[in-house]
Design a binder for these strands. Structure first.
Lengths: 156, 156
DNA sequence: GTCATAGTTAAAGTTAACTTCAAGTCAAGG
DNA sequence: CCTTGACTTGAAGTTAACTTTAACTATGAC
């Protein structure tokens, strides 16, 4: 491999830990750009690894690929986040994580107060019906990850 | 409606807040049992509401319907959980919630330490690669809800 | 030049938890 | 008896984030 500073799919996959199919998928979703060899094979610039790290971090915080694409697209030049971009973005992520944690704590505390009482009630029990989480539902944006929402993930 | 102590689908839906289609789906998945009228319409015993509350609570804690079915099936007679059952189950749920909370806290703290440093690295960054969450993956049981796992939800 | 290894594509499959649809049946008030 | 609203079924559709498959092509070491 002539060290041209460009990575093949296989190399990128190995270094990022992501399967090649995921890399191709990300590209198809507009999250990644690549150059091609004359033979139509992908070649990734080295900074794609940083971009992939960013994507993974965002996923861990609970963002969907759609949201991640939108976030990346808002950066000038479609560049991979710099230190300053990162500082800004991570601030909003912290908020998001705080909300998720708060929701789980509420759920756990509701559970504590239910233990032994067997109160499970559709209207009143904090565990079967955590009002403040459920209230997040609706047509608008929903920033809680699926697993933390008031209702289960629904197909449609 | 002759108050026969049995509820129609519509009534059960209204009282539980769940769409009738969800009730039928739960039944098809073995989570619910119903009796039928001579005309083949479903009639739910009143305690189905409690069972539905239980299902919803379990979902909020992060259990899949499969796990919930298994849990309910382990109760003698396939009965809806009593106060004692509930106390036992909620204890294991608490553990689960504690784990989820711990995972999120770890992620948030990793984020804190990253702010401003722009360190996003595939190998070292706690946010892009939270080792202890990722370590939970693998062939065995995985008790973290999807949104909190080291890798994104995968189709296959 | 040969050949194994690595890469390419489009299309279909996967999973959970439901929803939607089409086409037809039941219940009950008037 | 009739009509309307509620109910029935099975099959297909939905979403996200990928994976798998099939059939084919490029790369590069020897």
């Amino acid at each position: 491999m002539r060290a041209t500073d460009l990575l093949t799919v296989g190399e990128t996959s190995a270094r990022s830990g992501l399967p090649a199919s995921a890399l191709r998928y990300y590209e198809s979703q507009g999250l990644l750009e690549t150059t091609r060899t004359t033979g139509n094979q992908r070649r990734y610039p080295r900074h794609v690894l940083r971009r992939l790290a960013f994507i993974r971090a965002a996923q861990n915080v609970g963002l969907s690929l759609d949201e991640i694409r939108a976030t990346l697209a808002r950066l000038p030049d479609g560049r991979t986040p710099t230190r300053e971009d990162w500082a800004l973005l991570s601030e909003s992520w912290r908020t998001r994580l705080d909300e998720q944690i708060a929701a789980l704590l509420k759920l756990r505390d509701g559970l504590e107060s239910c233990i032994g009482c067997g109160c499970l009630s559709l209207e009143r029990c904090a565990v079967s019906n955590p009002g403040d989480i459920t209230a997040q539902r609706g047509p608008g944006a929903n920033y809680l990850p699926r697993a933390l929402r008031g209702s289960p993930p629904r197909g449609a």
